[in-house]
Protein backbone atom coordinates (compact mmCIF):
# COMPACT_ATOMS: atom_id res chain seq x y z
CA UNK A 1 0.00 0.00 0.00
CA UNK A 2 2.12 2.80 1.36
CA UNK A 3 2.91 5.63 -1.01
CA UNK A 4 3.91 3.58 -4.09
CA UNK A 5 1.26 5.17 -6.26
CA UNK A 6 2.32 8.63 -5.06
CA UNK A 7 5.94 8.59 -6.24
CA UNK A 8 5.42 11.48 -8.67
CA UNK A 9 3.37 13.46 -6.20
CA UNK A 10 5.92 13.07 -3.42
CA UNK A 11 8.71 14.30 -5.70
CA UNK A 12 6.63 17.23 -6.90
CA UNK A 13 5.91 18.10 -3.27
CA UNK A 14 9.58 18.05 -2.34
CA UNK A 15 10.47 20.10 -5.39
CA UNK A 16 7.78 22.74 -4.75
CA UNK A 17 8.54 23.17 -1.07
CA UNK A 18 12.30 23.17 -1.73
CA UNK A 19 11.97 25.83 -4.42
CA UNK A 20 9.82 27.91 -2.14
CA UNK A 21 12.43 27.70 0.63
CA UNK A 22 15.18 28.70 -1.82
CA UNK A 23 13.25 31.76 -2.96
CA UNK A 24 12.07 32.87 0.46
CA UNK A 25 15.09 32.00 2.62
CA UNK A 26 18.22 31.23 0.65
CA UNK A 27 18.09 34.03 -1.95
CA UNK A 28 17.06 36.80 0.50
CA UNK A 29 19.88 35.69 2.80
CA UNK A 30 22.41 36.78 0.16
CA UNK A 31 20.94 40.27 0.17
CA UNK A 32 20.57 40.53 3.92
CA UNK A 33 24.11 39.32 4.57
CA UNK A 34 25.43 42.21 2.51
CA UNK A 35 23.90 44.83 4.84
CA UNK A 36 26.62 46.97 6.42
CA UNK A 37 26.08 48.31 9.96
CA UNK A 38 25.27 51.98 10.18
CA UNK A 39 26.20 54.00 13.24
CA UNK A 40 22.60 53.54 14.43
CA UNK A 41 23.05 49.76 14.31
CA UNK A 42 26.36 49.88 16.17
CA UNK A 43 24.73 51.92 18.92
CA UNK A 44 21.69 49.61 19.15
CA UNK A 45 23.86 46.54 19.26
CA UNK A 46 26.15 47.93 21.97
CA UNK A 47 23.40 49.32 24.24
CA UNK A 48 21.29 46.15 24.23
CA UNK A 49 24.06 43.58 24.51
CA UNK A 50 23.64 39.96 23.58
CA UNK A 51 19.84 39.72 23.53
CA UNK A 52 16.89 41.59 25.02
CA UNK A 53 14.49 38.65 24.76
CA UNK A 54 14.67 35.44 26.78
CA UNK A 55 18.20 34.04 26.93
CA UNK A 56 20.39 32.12 29.32
CA UNK A 57 22.21 35.17 30.65
CA UNK A 58 18.92 36.64 31.89
CA UNK A 59 16.52 33.72 32.32
CA UNK A 60 13.96 35.61 34.42
CA UNK A 61 14.15 38.72 32.24
CA UNK A 62 14.97 41.06 35.09
CA UNK A 63 17.47 43.04 33.03
CA UNK A 64 20.43 41.19 34.57
CA UNK A 65 23.86 41.01 32.87
CA UNK A 66 23.18 43.98 30.61
CA UNK A 67 25.54 46.79 29.62
CA UNK A 68 25.00 50.46 30.48
CA UNK A 69 25.69 53.49 28.32
CA UNK A 70 27.60 56.30 30.03
CA UNK A 71 28.51 59.82 28.99
CA UNK A 72 32.19 60.43 29.71
CA UNK A 73 33.54 63.95 30.14
CA UNK A 74 36.90 62.90 31.56
CA UNK A 75 39.21 60.09 30.58
CA UNK A 76 38.52 57.46 33.26
CA UNK A 77 42.14 56.31 33.28
CA UNK A 78 44.02 59.60 33.41
CA UNK A 79 41.27 61.86 34.75
CA UNK A 80 42.08 64.43 32.03
CA UNK A 81 39.09 66.15 30.36
CA UNK A 82 38.20 64.63 26.97
CA UNK A 83 38.13 66.87 23.89
CA UNK A 84 34.38 66.34 23.73
CA UNK A 85 31.96 64.24 25.83
CA UNK A 86 32.02 60.65 24.60
CA UNK A 87 29.47 57.88 24.91
CA UNK A 88 30.91 54.61 26.19
CA UNK A 89 29.20 51.25 26.49
CA UNK A 90 30.20 49.55 29.71
CA UNK A 91 29.96 45.77 29.98
CA UNK A 92 30.58 44.90 33.63
CA UNK A 93 32.30 41.55 34.31
CA UNK A 94 29.78 38.76 33.63
CA UNK A 95 27.66 40.68 31.12
CA UNK A 96 27.41 38.79 27.85
CA UNK A 97 29.32 40.43 25.03
CA UNK A 98 27.41 41.94 22.08
CA UNK A 99 26.96 39.72 19.02
CA UNK A 100 29.74 41.42 17.10
CA UNK A 101 32.45 40.17 19.48
CA UNK A 102 31.83 36.51 18.71
CA UNK A 103 30.43 37.00 15.21
CA UNK A 104 32.03 40.13 13.74
CA UNK A 105 30.71 39.22 10.30
CA UNK A 106 27.30 40.56 11.36
CA UNK A 107 28.83 44.05 11.19
CA UNK A 108 29.11 43.84 7.42
CA UNK A 109 31.98 44.36 4.99
CA UNK A 110 34.39 47.14 5.98
CA UNK A 111 33.07 47.66 9.50
CA UNK A 112 34.02 44.10 10.39
CA UNK A 113 37.69 44.56 9.42
CA UNK A 114 38.03 47.93 11.13
CA UNK A 115 36.36 46.73 14.35
CA UNK A 116 38.53 43.64 14.53
CA UNK A 117 41.86 45.12 13.45
CA UNK A 118 41.69 48.76 14.62
CA UNK A 119 39.05 48.35 17.33
CA UNK A 120 40.40 45.03 18.69
CA UNK A 121 36.89 43.86 19.64
CA UNK A 122 38.03 40.24 19.55
CA UNK A 123 40.00 40.84 22.76
CA UNK A 124 36.86 41.66 24.81
CA UNK A 125 36.03 38.88 27.28
CA UNK A 126 32.91 38.29 29.35
CA UNK A 127 34.91 37.45 32.48
CA UNK A 128 36.67 40.80 32.77
CA UNK A 129 34.03 42.94 31.10
CA UNK A 130 34.84 45.59 28.53
CA UNK A 131 34.22 49.21 27.59
CA UNK A 132 33.33 49.96 23.97
CA UNK A 133 33.12 53.22 22.09
CA UNK A 134 31.97 53.96 18.55
CA UNK A 135 34.58 55.54 16.31
CA UNK A 136 32.62 57.92 14.09
CA UNK A 137 32.85 57.74 10.32
CA UNK A 138 35.69 59.78 8.84
CA UNK A 139 36.19 60.52 5.19
CA UNK A 140 35.39 57.34 3.33
CA UNK A 141 35.88 55.17 6.38
CA UNK A 142 32.70 53.84 8.05
CA UNK A 143 31.98 54.02 11.77
CA UNK A 144 33.25 51.05 13.73
CA UNK A 145 33.42 49.63 17.26
CA UNK A 146 36.49 50.18 19.39
CA UNK A 147 37.24 48.10 22.46
CA UNK A 148 38.50 50.90 24.70
CA UNK A 149 39.61 48.39 27.33
CA UNK A 150 42.21 47.09 24.87
CA UNK A 151 43.08 50.34 23.10
CA UNK A 152 42.90 52.87 25.97
CA UNK A 153 43.04 50.69 29.08
CA UNK A 154 39.57 51.77 30.29
CA UNK A 155 38.38 49.30 32.94
CA UNK A 156 34.58 48.88 33.43
CA UNK A 157 34.76 49.45 37.20
CA UNK A 158 36.81 52.64 36.83
CA UNK A 159 34.51 54.02 34.16
CA UNK A 160 31.42 53.45 36.29
CA UNK A 161 33.10 55.12 39.28
CA UNK A 162 34.09 58.17 37.24
CA UNK A 163 30.59 59.21 36.10
CA UNK A 164 27.64 60.60 38.09
CA UNK A 165 24.42 58.58 38.06
CA UNK A 166 22.60 61.02 35.77
CA UNK A 167 25.13 60.24 33.02
CA UNK A 168 24.45 56.48 33.23
CA UNK A 169 21.64 55.05 31.07
CA UNK A 170 20.39 51.50 31.73
CA UNK A 171 19.22 51.09 28.16
CA UNK A 172 20.00 47.39 27.83
CA UNK A 173 17.92 46.48 30.87
CA UNK A 174 15.27 48.90 29.63
CA UNK A 175 14.94 47.11 26.33
CA UNK A 176 14.38 43.88 28.24
CA UNK A 177 11.56 45.68 30.08
CA UNK A 178 10.18 46.84 26.74
CA UNK A 179 10.06 43.24 25.53
CA UNK A 180 8.88 41.70 28.82
CA UNK A 181 6.13 44.23 29.48
CA UNK A 182 4.82 43.83 25.92
CA UNK A 183 5.16 47.51 24.94
CA UNK A 184 5.59 46.29 21.37
CA UNK A 185 2.06 44.85 21.27
CA UNK A 186 0.77 48.41 20.89
CA UNK A 187 3.76 50.51 19.82
CA UNK A 188 5.72 49.80 16.65
CA UNK A 189 9.42 50.52 16.19
CA UNK A 190 9.00 50.84 12.44
CA UNK A 191 7.73 54.11 10.97
CA UNK A 192 6.23 53.35 7.59
CA UNK A 193 7.46 54.52 4.23
CA UNK A 194 4.33 56.66 3.70
CA UNK A 195 2.95 59.56 5.76
CA UNK A 196 4.74 58.40 8.90
CA UNK A 197 7.74 60.49 7.81
CA UNK A 198 6.11 63.70 9.01
CA UNK A 199 4.63 62.42 12.26
CA UNK A 200 6.90 59.67 13.52
CA UNK A 201 10.13 60.40 11.67
CA UNK A 202 12.21 58.64 9.06
CA UNK A 203 11.82 54.89 8.52
CA UNK A 204 14.92 52.84 9.37
CA UNK A 205 17.66 52.17 6.82
CA UNK A 206 18.94 48.81 5.58
CA UNK A 207 21.94 48.59 7.93
CA UNK A 208 20.17 49.87 11.05
CA UNK A 209 19.48 46.46 12.61
CA UNK A 210 22.66 44.42 12.32
CA UNK A 211 23.22 42.48 15.51
CA UNK A 212 19.94 43.55 17.15
CA UNK A 213 17.76 40.87 18.76
CA UNK A 214 14.83 40.95 18.98
CA UNK A 215 14.03 43.76 16.56
CA UNK A 216 10.51 43.99 18.10
CA UNK A 217 9.10 45.92 15.12
CA UNK A 218 5.55 45.32 16.35
CA UNK A 219 2.66 44.91 13.96
CA UNK A 220 -0.43 46.22 15.69
CA UNK A 221 -0.44 49.92 16.48
CA UNK A 222 -2.70 51.01 19.30
CA UNK A 223 -0.41 53.88 20.24
CA UNK A 224 2.16 56.00 18.38
CA UNK A 225 5.33 54.63 16.79
CA UNK A 226 8.29 54.91 19.17
CA UNK A 227 11.38 54.60 16.97
CA UNK A 228 12.17 58.30 17.35
CA UNK A 229 10.12 59.10 20.45
CA UNK A 230 13.14 60.47 22.32
CA UNK A 231 13.45 63.18 19.67
CA UNK A 232 9.82 64.23 20.05
CA UNK A 233 9.76 64.24 23.84
CA UNK A 234 12.99 64.13 25.83
CA UNK A 235 11.50 64.94 29.24
CA UNK A 236 12.35 62.39 31.90
CA UNK A 237 9.70 63.90 34.20
CA UNK A 238 6.96 63.55 31.59
CA UNK A 239 7.95 59.93 30.98
CA UNK A 240 7.90 59.28 34.72
CA UNK A 241 4.35 60.61 35.12
CA UNK A 242 3.22 58.86 31.95
CA UNK A 243 4.52 55.44 32.94
CA UNK A 244 3.17 55.70 36.49
CA UNK A 245 -0.29 56.57 35.24
CA UNK A 246 -0.67 57.68 31.60
CA UNK A 247 -3.89 59.50 32.39
CA UNK A 248 -2.00 62.01 34.53
CA UNK A 249 -0.59 63.62 31.38
CA UNK A 250 -2.98 62.33 28.72
CA UNK A 251 -6.54 61.92 30.01
CA UNK A 252 -7.69 59.95 26.96
CA UNK A 253 -4.80 57.48 26.87
CA UNK A 254 -5.67 53.76 26.92
CA UNK A 255 -2.15 52.75 27.94
CA UNK A 256 -1.93 50.53 31.04
CA UNK A 257 -0.35 51.87 34.22
CA UNK A 258 3.18 50.63 34.76
CA UNK A 259 3.41 51.79 38.38
CA UNK A 260 4.41 48.29 39.48
CA UNK A 261 7.78 48.78 37.75
CA UNK A 262 8.68 51.26 40.52
CA UNK A 263 9.09 48.37 42.96
CA UNK A 264 8.67 48.83 46.68
CA UNK A 265 10.75 51.95 47.37
CA UNK A 266 11.33 55.28 45.63
CA UNK A 267 14.60 57.15 44.95
CA UNK A 268 14.81 58.35 48.58
CA UNK A 269 14.38 54.85 49.95
CA UNK A 270 10.82 55.64 51.12
CA UNK A 271 8.26 52.84 50.86
CA UNK A 272 5.74 53.53 48.10
CA UNK A 273 2.17 53.26 49.38
CA UNK A 274 0.29 52.28 46.22
CA UNK A 275 -3.08 51.93 47.93
CA UNK A 276 -2.87 55.44 49.30
CA UNK A 277 -1.75 56.80 45.94
CA UNK A 278 -4.61 55.12 44.10
CA UNK A 279 -7.18 56.31 46.63
CA UNK A 280 -5.92 59.90 46.30
CA UNK A 281 -5.89 59.59 42.53
CA UNK A 282 -9.49 58.36 42.55
CA UNK A 283 -10.44 61.39 44.64
CA UNK A 284 -8.72 63.60 42.07
CA UNK A 285 -10.59 61.94 39.20
CA UNK A 286 -13.85 62.42 41.04
CA UNK A 287 -13.13 66.10 41.61
CA UNK A 288 -12.60 65.83 45.38
CA UNK A 289 -8.95 66.89 45.12
CA UNK A 290 -7.83 69.75 42.87
CA UNK A 291 -4.48 68.06 42.10
CA UNK A 292 -3.37 64.48 41.65
CA UNK A 293 -0.96 62.95 44.18
CA UNK A 294 2.77 63.30 43.48
CA UNK A 295 4.42 60.53 41.52
CA UNK A 296 7.38 58.99 43.38
CA UNK A 297 10.77 59.33 41.68
CA UNK A 298 11.90 55.83 40.68
CA UNK A 299 14.85 54.32 42.52
CA UNK A 300 18.22 54.18 40.73
CA UNK A 301 18.05 50.44 40.20
CA UNK A 302 14.31 50.20 39.54
CA UNK A 303 12.83 48.67 36.42
CA UNK A 304 10.95 51.90 35.75
CA UNK A 305 14.22 53.82 35.53
CA UNK A 306 15.64 51.33 33.02
CA UNK A 307 12.52 51.50 30.84
CA UNK A 308 12.55 55.31 30.88
CA UNK A 309 16.26 55.28 29.96
CA UNK A 310 15.48 53.02 27.01
CA UNK A 311 12.55 55.09 25.76
CA UNK A 312 14.55 58.34 25.97
CA UNK A 313 17.37 56.66 24.03
CA UNK A 314 15.08 56.19 21.01
CA UNK A 315 16.21 59.28 19.14
Amino acid sequence: MAFREYKVGARMFGFSLGTSMCITILFPSFDMRSAVSTEVALDKQLVAGWDAGWNLSDPLMTGANKPVKVLLKNDPKTGQPLEQPTSAYVYPPGAWMPNAVGHPNNLGAGVEGLSVNQGRIGEAKKEGGAVFVIKAAQGGQPAYIENATATKGWIPGDVLKSVPDEDVAHIGAGKTMFVREGCWWCHTLLPEQTQDWQVFGAPPMLGDFNGESPTAFGSDRKGPDLLHVGSRNASKEWMMLHFFNPRLVQPHSIMPRFDYLWGSVDANGQKIDYDKWRAEYTDYREGKNPTPPDVPVPAKNSEARALIDFILSLK
Partner: peptide, 10 residues
Protein backbone atom coordinates in the same frame (compact mmCIF):
# COMPACT_ATOMS: atom_id res chain seq x y z
CA UNK B 1 20.88 33.57 17.66
CA UNK B 2 20.41 35.09 14.23
CA UNK B 3 19.92 38.82 14.60
CA UNK B 4 18.87 42.02 12.87
CA UNK B 5 16.83 42.04 9.70
CA UNK B 6 17.23 38.27 9.37
CA UNK B 7 15.54 37.82 12.74
CA UNK B 8 12.72 40.18 11.78
CA UNK B 9 12.18 38.46 8.44
CA UNK B 10 12.29 34.93 9.88
Amino acid sequence: HLTGLTEAYM
